[in-house]
C-alpha cells in the first residue's frame, strides 16, 4: 500500500512538466526514504535523477518498496487537471496495475480522482559516482534558461568555460558567433539573483544546446540552478525542489573527433 500526500501539489505538476519531453516512460521508485526516479532519454545521452524525500510529504505511507512504471506524458496530462494550489495524493495498492491521483482544493470543496494504468518498464539503473568538480556555478535559473534559448537561435552547441573572471557561454553557427559572460555577483540583498562561482581550476566543455534547453523546463521549480563541471565528465544541472529534494540532469560533453 502506497499513499503519498503532498500539500504543495503544484510542485509535482512542475516536476512532470520538466521531465515529460526528455523521458517517455520511467519507473518511479517508492521506498521509506522517498519518491525517486532515474531515467535516460530515448537516445541514452542524458540522464535525469529525481528525489522527493519522504519528510517533504504531509503524509507518507510506503509499506514496501514499490516501482511504479508510468508514461510521463500521460502522468503530466493527469496532473495538468490539478490546480496549482491543489493538494495531490498518489495512491497505489501493492498488486495493482493502476495508480490513483487525488486532487483536493485547498478549502476541500472539490475532490477529484484520476486513475492511470501502470506499465511494465525494463529500466537500467545506473550508478552515479560521487565526483569532485573542477567548477560549480550557481546562478539564477531564469538567466540560464534565457542564455540557452538565445544561443540556440545561433548555434547547436554551447561551450561553457569557467575562469576566475566568470562563466562564459559561447556558440557559433552559420550566421556568426555569440559570447555571454556572467560575472560572480553575490547579490547579498537578493540571494535568488546571485551568481556564485566556486572554481578549483579553469574548465571548458562543449554541450548540445538541445538537451540544455530541455533541462531548463525545470526553471519554474527553483530560482537558482547549479551547474557542476569537470573535464571529460558529464555536467550536472541541478534544480532544488523546494526543501524536499532535487531534480538533476546529467549530460556528457561533446568530444572533438
Amino acid at each position: 500500500m502506497l499513499e503519498l500526500r503532498l500539500v504543495q501539489g503544484g510542485l509535482l505538476k512542475k516536476v512532470l512538466e520538466s521531465l515529460k519531453d526528455l523521458v517517455n516512460d520511467a519507473n518511479f521508485d517508492c521506498s521509506a526514504s522517498g519518491f525517486s526516479l532515474q531515467a535516460m532519454d530515448s537516445s541514452h545521452v542524458a540522464l535525469v535523477a529525481l528525489l522527493l524525500r519522504s519528510e517533504g510529504f504531509e503524509h507518507y505511507r510506503c509499506d514496501r518498496n514499490l516501482s511504479l512504471g508510468m508514461n510521463l506524458n500521460n502522468m503530466a496530462k493527469m496532473l495538468k487537471c490539478a490546480a496549482n494550489d491543489d493538494i495531490v495524493t498518489i495512491k497505489a495498492d501493492d498488486a495493482s496495475d493502476s495508480v490513483t491521483f487525488m486532487f483536493e482544493s485547498p478549502n476541500q470543496d472539490k475532490i477529484a480522482d484520476f486513475e492511470m494504468k501502470l506499465m511494465d518498464i525494463d529500466s537500467e539503473h545506473l550508478g552515479i559516482p560521487e565526483a569532485e568538480f573542477q567548477a560549480i556555478v550557481r546562478m539564477p535559473s531564469a538567466e540560464f534558461a534565457r542564455i540557452c534559448k538565445d544561443l540556440s537561435t545561433i548555434g547547436d552547441t554551447v561551450v561553457i568555460s569557467v575562469t576566475k573572471e566568470g562563466v562564459k557561454f559561447s556558440t557559433r553557427g552559420d550566421i556568426g558567433t555569440a559570447n555571454i559572460v556572467c560575472r560572480q555577483n553575490p547579490s547579498i540583498d537578493k540571494p535568488e539573483e546571485a551568481t556564485i562561482i566556486e572554481m578549483e581550476e579553469p574548465v571548458s566543455l562543449t554541450f548540445a544546446l538541445r538537451y540544455m534547453n530541455s533541462f531548463t523546463k525545470a526553471t519554474p521549480l527553483a530560482n537558482q540552478v547549479t551547474i557542476s563541471l569537470s573535464a571529460d565528465l558529464p555536467v550536472v544541472v541541478e534544480y532544488r525542489v523546494a526543501e524536499m529534494g532535487y531534480i538533476r540532469f546529467y549530460l556528457a560533453p561533446k568530444i572533438e573527433e
Binding site: 535516460m40 545521452v45 537500467e124 546529467y250 560533453p253 572533438e256
Partner: peptide, 14 residues
C-alpha cells in the same frame, strides 16, 4: 566535427 557520447559510457549499470 564533434561526437556526442552516450551517458552509459560514464555511468555503469548497477
Amino acid at each position: 566535427g564533434s561526437k556526442q557520447p552516450m551517458i552509459t559510457r560514464f555511468f555503469g549499470k548497477v
